[in-house]
Deep mutational scan, measured.
Amino acid sequence: MSIQHFRVALIPFFAAFCLPVFAHPETLVKVKDAEDQLGARVGYIELDLNSGKILESFRPEERFPMMSTFKVLLCGAVLSRVDAGQEQLGRRIHYSQNDLVEYSPVTEKHLTDGMTVRELCSAAITMSDNTAANLLLTTIGGPKELTAFLHNMGDHVTRLDRWEPELNEAIPNDERDTTMPAAMATTLRKLLTGELLTLASRQQLIDWMEADKVAGPLLRSALPAGWFIADKSGAGERGSRGIIAALGPDGKPSRIVVIYTTGSQATMDERNRQIAEIGASLIKHW
């Protein structure tokens, strides 16, 4: 067993022997301040990774656009098919120029040779490549099948209805392509620590998230040296922004954090800054 596999296998073990965790309302004060600064709703939840206990939450059962955070769930569904012998990570998928959609920095470079399922998941999570996500959605049967996968996990809230990039439209009061912070946090925890996926697939999923290259201005910008984070960000229309993450000190994750916002007129930089400040408060009061 590799060191990384050992780390993920012992996530519940280490967490069980940690000192009790206590909620700190100071972080919620910052979440509410972010709402004021952005002029928009902000949803927040913080779960203990081992027990699933909610440590703090704000608007945990209000719907927010998922945006690209759905790509972690998508690759979880792909990995479940791999575990069941219905898919192979090494299978190569070929596609054409007509398949390319807006923001496809990886797939646009491989029109000639195609990409493997493993490479597509890596591109979808680490670079948020939209064509990679659409190609992977095709392998599982489309958005409705991802929703069905989530329902089978016990998540009857999260739903995907459309493809990239239309799913980022974020129309107010439109339930399409949305989740709730509580539902997303619980589902992410199941994917990373539950028995739904094999140990190898859980490790692969967290490795992809740990290698995320496009979430630097968010929670990662607030992390002290030595902290662990595996995350996936999302951005959408109407001032929408979000991030889902597993993080913790001492090089291992111990909490799940989900943050979503929508309806702001603020710039992307300002949305990023507010999420980073929430992260800084979380870490300060850990």
Rank of each mutant, 00 (worst) to 15 (best):
R176P: 04
I125W: 14
L135G: 13
I278Q: 13
Q265N: 07
E119P: 14
T147S: 12
N168L: 09
V117G: 02
T158D: 15
A133K: 14
I229L: 02
R162W: 12
T69P: 05
G234Y: 04
M115L: 00
L205Q: 09
S240D: 00
H110E: 15
I275W: 08
A222F: 15
F228E: 11
Q86L: 08
A245N: 06
T147C: 12
K53S: 02
D231P: 08
G114V: 11
E87D: 12
A266S: 15
R118I: 13
N173Y: 06
R176Y: 05
V42S: 00
R189A: 10
Q204R: 10
R202N: 09
M66R: 09
E87A: 13
P172H: 15
K32T: 10
I244L: 13
R273E: 14
R41Q: 15
D174T: 07
R176S: 04
Q88F: 03
L282K: 01
R273S: 13
G76P: 05
K144F: 14
I278T: 11
K144V: 13
G141M: 06
I125E: 14
S221K: 15
P172C: 01
N50H: 09
E108T: 06
G76S: 09
D174A: 11
M268H: 13
S96T: 09
D129Y: 13
L89D: 12
A170E: 02
V101W: 00
L199P: 01
S128T: 01
M127L: 05
D33I: 06
R238A: 09
G242L: 07
T193F: 05
L191E: 02
G142W: 06
K32M: 10
L282R: 05
D83C: 00
F149A: 12
G279Q: 11
C75A: 12
S122G: 14
I45H: 04
L55Y: 05
A235L: 10
N152H: 13
I256P: 12
E56L: 06
K232F: 15
K284V: 03
P181C: 00
I283H: 07
P25M: 03
H285E: 06
V42I: 00
H110F: 11
A123W: 00
P60D: 04
N134I: 07
F149D: 14
I54C: 05
T139P: 03
D36E: 08
W208E: 05
T112C: 00
R220F: 05
E26I: 01
T193Q: 06
E119W: 15
T139L: 03
M66D: 05
I125H: 15
N168V: 06
W163D: 12
G248R: 03
N168W: 07
D36K: 06
T126L: 11
R220P: 08
V78S: 12
C75K: 11
E26Q: 09
S233C: 01
L218Q: 02
K30T: 15
R189E: 07
D113T: 10
R189N: 12
V106A: 13
C121F: 12
I93M: 13
G251N: 09
Q88Y: 14
S240M: 02
S122Q: 14
S96G: 05
A215W: 00
S57P: 08
V29E: 01
V31R: 03
E175G: 00
A185F: 06
A266L: 15
E108W: 08
R159C: 05
E102Y: 08
S221R: 04
R59E: 03
E62D: 12
N50R: 05
H94A: 09
L49P: 14
R41G: 07
P172E: 07
M184Q: 10
P105M: 15
G194C: 02
G263T: 03
D269E: 15
G85A: 02
E164Q: 10
G76Q: 01
E277N: 10
P25T: 05
M67Y: 13
T178D: 09
E175K: 02
L199G: 03
G141S: 09
E210H: 12
Q265A: 11
M268L: 12
I275P: 13
A246G: 07
A246E: 13
T138K: 15
K71L: 05
E164T: 11
R59K: 04
N98T: 02
M115W: 00
D155V: 14
L196I: 10
N152R: 09
I275L: 14
E210P: 03
T186W: 01
R189Q: 07
K213F: 02
E270S: 13
L111M: 08
